[in-house]
Amino acid sequence: MEAAKCCPATLLLPLLLLLVHSPATMVTCRAEMESVYVGQRVLPVRLGRPAFGPESLAFDHRGDGPYTGVSNGRVLRWRGPLRGWTEFAHNHKHETVTACAAKKRAVAPESACGRPLGLQFHRASGDLYFADAYLGLMRVGRAGGRAEAVATEAGGAALNFANGVDVDQETGHVYFTDSSATFQRSDYIMIILTGDATGRLLRYDPATGGVAVLATGLAFPNGVALSADGTHLVVAETARCRLLRHWLRGPRAGATEPFADLPGYPDNVRLAAGDGGDDTSAYYWVALNRDKAWMEEGTTPRSVAAVRVRAADGAVDRALRGLGNATVSEVVERPGGALWLGSVDTPYVGLFRTGGGL
């Protein structure tokens, strides 16, 4: 299959002009989605300097948080308005590399100190797993502190760009993506420009320490989410502007297939289940770096920042609009309908209180 030529949010305009847009390879997204204009109703929960870019968000077994990984290589925890953000976890470089020390306020290159991206808790053990783009799959216990790398290779090949993470709460298996075997996060633009499709979908088993390769040949695999019934994974394939479904159980186990066409370039995916606890009452929030119209129109009040996708059939039924130039990398829905918004480009986490759901 030929890859659709999509671009992520932070590509500069001159580089966009180098891309050859090929509409014939892209399925038109459904037009019936309803719009929610969030605009100025998003509350910025600001980080302390020099940290920025809260890419992914997670809540622990008590519902406390969010926790998020930021640009200086650390994982922070929100302790409420009075205490603010405090450090929860760090990697070994923050103890051994001078430029990464806690008291350093200068911004070091993220490759020097690590860059946490997707993260998720295993609630029963209290362990937090997160993908560090440069160090691999990391784990830290419920008390926080120094995180250890639990996976740095798969199938005989080193992890090169660890990215999205989700955890099966029943089995403890950790599902994550390796976005490219060729380019690291610092050179992610080249994944698009070269049409690179060397990304992988992986599974870490904490009982054995083994890592299984579930799918290969993916074009910038990004966020990953386990379905409500545990039968399959939903994976964001950024470079092709779509979601994939990878079957874990059932007659199609091991197969990977298209699941949803999207109106933009997806980042993280998070499941939000309804009362039924299965795919008939569940949906996914999918953050979009930019919508497709941005290439021609720039950012407008109608620009789509995130979409809600029905788990039953892959239909896009809601769109969040009106966030201006702030890109969105993750949307997490909490009880009561509040939406927490992550972004690689902002010095804050966004909070949108819906007042009862969407």
Rank of each mutant, 00 (worst) to 15 (best):
Y67D: 07
S71H: 09
N72R: 15
N72E: 15
R74S: 11
R74C: 12
R77I: 08
R77C: 12
G80L: 11
P81S: 15
E87A: 12
F88Y: 14
H92D: 13
H92R: 15
H94P: 10
H94T: 01
V97W: 09
A99D: 08
A99P: 05
A101V: 11
A101P: 08
K103R: 12
R105Y: 00
A106W: 10
A106L: 12
A108V: 11
A108N: 14
P109L: 07
S111L: 08
A112K: 12
C113Y: 06
G114D: 08
R115Q: 12
L117A: 02
L117Q: 02
G118H: 06
G118F: 08
L119G: 12
R123N: 01
R123A: 04
R123W: 10
S125R: 04
Y129S: 02
D132Y: 14
Y134N: 00
Y134L: 04
L135H: 06
L135V: 06
L135S: 09
L135Q: 04
G136L: 06
G136F: 06
L137T: 05
M138S: 02
M138C: 05
R142K: 11
G145S: 08
G145P: 08
A147T: 11
V150E: 02
A151R: 00
T152V: 11
E153T: 14
E153I: 05
A154T: 05
A157E: 15
A158K: 14
N160G: 01
F161M: 07
A162E: 00
N163R: 02
G164I: 04
D168A: 14
Q169N: 13
Q169G: 13
Q169D: 14
E170Q: 14
E170D: 10
E170M: 07
T171L: 12
G172M: 02
G172Y: 07
H173V: 08
H173Q: 05
V174F: 03
V174P: 05
V174I: 05
F176T: 15
T177D: 08
S179R: 03
S179F: 08
S179W: 09
S180H: 10
T182W: 10
F183G: 00
Q184L: 03
Q184C: 08
Q184M: 03
I192R: 08
T194L: 06
A197Q: 15
A197Y: 06
T198Q: 13
T198D: 12
L201M: 11
R203E: 12
D205C: 03
D205M: 00
A207S: 11
G209C: 09
V211L: 09
